[in-house]
């Protein structure tokens, strides 16, 4: 049973490899899938309430960029930007990338992560809360996000699950190695 997310930071090499990749294609894809999701499930915007159209920055600590998310009826957008370019955001959520993914699919409890300081929030707390509660209700799976159903959705969820498990093991090993190096340095 997952409770909180101990030491789930990706190795710095991942960030180094991702940094030079072009942002635009990923932005276009994420925006398109987000708009489709909102169109399929209008009840999510209802739950968001006052947060509709409010830009919220999602900042993975262990990635080179931030995501600026704005949800709207037909103008939802996901912008990928440098971490110092999120001043437009009304609220900011910071955590390691895998922790953020775990929050997205409900694997982790946001309050517990906040208590352990693995999750940090800044700005308008009510916006973060509304987004968190909406995502909780969304029960998002990768298949659902990409608009798949039936066997393709099952395959996508299985594939993503395997990938995520491997990433978590990698992150866990990375953190253990880093800790061990830290301890070695202290001796």
């Amino acid at each position: 049973m997952p409770t909180t997310a101990p030491a789930l930071s990706l190795p710095p090499l991942i960030s180094t490899l991702i940094a030079p990749l072009p942002k635009t294609p990923m932005e276009v894809l994420l925006t398109r899938f987000t708009r489709r999701l909102v169109a399929r499930r209008p009840e999510l915007l209802q739950r968001l309430g006052a947060v509709v159209k409010v830009p919220i920055a999602i900042v993975p600590d262990d990635m080179p960029h931030a995501f600026l998310l704005s949800l709207d009826n037909d103008k939802s957008s996901v912008e990928i930007c440098d971490k110092d370019q999120i001043t437009r955001a009304k609220a900011v959520v910071r955590a390691p990338f895998l922790v953020l993914l775990g929050l997205l699919d409900g694997t982790y409890d946001a309050d517990a992560l906040f208590f352990t300081r693995d999750l940090k929030i800044e700005g308008r707390t009510e916006h973060v809360l509304a987004l968190r509660n909406t995502l909780e209700e969304a029960d998002l799976t990768p298949g659902e996000f990409f608009g798949l159903s039936g066997r393709p959705a099952q395959w996508m969820n299985g594939f993503s699950g395997t990938l995520l498990d491997k990433a978590k093991r990698l992150a866990g090993n990375g953190s253990r190695n880093a800790n061990s190096m830290e301890q070695d340095g202290q001796r």
Partner: peptide
């Protein structure tokens, strides 16, 4: 609280 808390 979230689903992870509830389920746990």
């Amino acid at each position: 609280r979230g689903k992870a808390y509830i389920a746990g």
